[in-house]
Design a protein around this nucleic acid. Structure first.
Lengths: 329, 329
DNA sequence: ATGAAAGCGCTAACAG
DNA sequence: CTGTTAGCGCTTTCAT
């Protein structure tokens, strides 16, 4: 077993509580004693056992962060921002991947909840009912999902979607498709609603195709349906789907943006690196990550009395190369 | 505070030790009692506190996984594979991102080591010396770095690199460049060594340019130097660098593969989705993740006596669209 | 098969 | 400023 507080106490000729104070309330201990203890601890390679500390303080100084898929480039910027923000607050973030599986998601939450002070749920696929039940166990903050009575960070994708549909209309597209996302996704619902509304306003004919897996495979698989739908513009659930769709369209001899204009959502790395560069909707993922951590830490500190704030972050359309004027019908 | 083992004991009229056994050694308790306890626990929403359990057993059933950059598409497949493998062994993996910062890396290890039974170090930037020192605290398995006396999983990138240089030579390229990676990267050293050796064998003139940041920014920034070097083929530290380089070359009016052939390393998502599709070297990341977890768990179980296995995984060249015959000189 | 008691490493009153 | 004492939630002998 590793070196404990007791070893340090013995070796420096003080009581364990003095050693404890040296680390958790240094100002309460004589400078001379403190230095001696510190030196001994250093020499022995002592590190306080955070798990044991958590047992008495009730604070682990850990946060859990649950995402559907680490490999989805939407998440890493959020994860990094959350970790950085947490570190500034002397907290650490444990990341877990649910593989888009609601059952696994619930299991992870339940196993995590005793080891962390709070959990950040990003784009959860869980039903609101389950979330409501789980919240008794541990403070939650939810990103991109509306759960009543819970602190929430929402990215207002509708804003960007309306701009995107307007952009398509402005380019002369009359028949457009929407490739929706996974069934449990709040964002997918938001996209769909905003797109339908704006399309109706502008007199566009909108076909909704889906649900689709939120991956390039999902987009690839949908290419046939898109081609068959006879549309000239497509808005996709995310960049990966858009990229997969472009690939699938190309396999069918359809050029993007020559024959079909394609718009993604997320403004992720692959979209920026692809050819044509993807027209997409920026999501303020880093800001969301930071804000979610702050909200969560506030919840942790306030306990039951925590404010259930809802933060709405803005999104916007970035026009690049995957959209162009509709070829005359 | 949440519901504890004591609450369950009281509510079901047995002693805490019986409740404990019900969960950790069910066969030692009368079926009838067990069912009653289970029912009560279920009703109360009791979940064993893993941190407290860890305090007595000395096993947290957690593993730490440290990577330089979650946003680097090289890592997610490895992370997912490691998490899946660990879950099968009833372990959980906590992921942490060091932001390519050795100091942060060390801090993370030190803070993690008391909350996990072992740590997986992926492509560490830490010096071997520091790793040697830290290993006293917690079992390690290292991926893509050779540390004497430590269990190691190595991806034999040299194999792929030799094929890549051969591929370039076969296409008639005579002057080629290598964009190396970060200073602390073992993989970068391996690539360089294998490339230099094979280039010498084949009579190619090889220019090494670097170190470069392992991101598309790094590649973008190196485009000028590549153009100035007057080479017709470039091997890059990873796909991101390659993609950035292609972008930078294009800004300078140079076409890939028309004017310059570019090869990446990793076979990552953005490389598959980009245009031209990137010729690259596949890295067996998922296999490495699984293997690393198995080795680590073996280390955890065996303690000091753990075998310090070194596993070597094969890599290979995938020829796609970013390389072609050298334009006549 | 179950209960009693000790203790994992640490913190938190409370004395002194 | 420092020592004493009592646990945090759980497991683990050792009895019974």
């Amino acid at each position: 077993m590793a070196v404990t507080i007791r070893d340090v106490a013995r070796a420096s000729g003080v009581h364990v509580s003095t050693v404890s104070r040296t680390f958790s309330a240094p100002h309460l201990v004589n400078a001379e004693t403190r230095n001696r203890v510190l030196a001994v601890a250093e020499g022995l390679g002592y590190r306080p056992n955070r798990a044991a500390r958590a047992l008495t303080t009730g604070r682990t100084h850990n946060l859990g962060l649950i995402v559907a898929d680490i490999a989805n480039p939407f998440f890493p910027p959020l994860i990094k921002a959350a970790q950085a923000q947490a570190r500034e607050r002397d907290y650490h973030v444990f990341v877990a991947d649910t593989d888009e599986d609601p059952v696994l998601e619930q299991e992870l939450i339940e196993m995590l909840c005793k080891q962390v002070d709070g959990v950040l749920l990003c784009s959860p696929r869980l039903s609101n009912r389950v979330i409501e039940r789980l919240r008794a166990q541990v403070p939650f903050v939810v990103v991109n999902r509306r759960v009543k009575g819970l602190a929430t960070v929402l990215m207002d994708v509708g804003q960007g979607v309306r701009a995107a549909v307007g952009h398509l209309a402005g380019l002369g597209h009359r028949r457009v498709a929407l490739l929706s996302g996974p069934a449990g996704s709040w964002t997918s619902g938001e996209i769909r609603e905003s797109a339908a509304e704006r399309a109706a306003d502008l007199g566009l004919e909108l076909t909704v195709l889906g649900p689709n897996a939120p991956t390039e495979q999902g987009g690839l698989a949908a290419a046939g349906a898109v081609a068959a739908a006879g549309v000239t513009g497509v808005l996709c659930y995310n960049d990966l789907v858009a990229l997969g769709l472009i690939e699938g369209l190309r396999e069918r001899g359809l050029d993007v943006p020559g024959d079909v204009s394609v718009i993604g959502v997320d403004d992720s790395l692959p979209g920026r690196l692809s050819r044509p560069k993807l027209t997409t909707i920026t999501m303020p993922t880093a800001a969301a990550g930071r804000m979610a951590v702050d909200l969560l830490l506030a919840s942790v500190a306030a306990g039951e009395a925590a404010p259930r704030t809802t933060a709405r972050l803005e999104t916007s359309l970035v026009i690049r190369e995957s959209t162009q004027r509709a070829s005359s019908p």
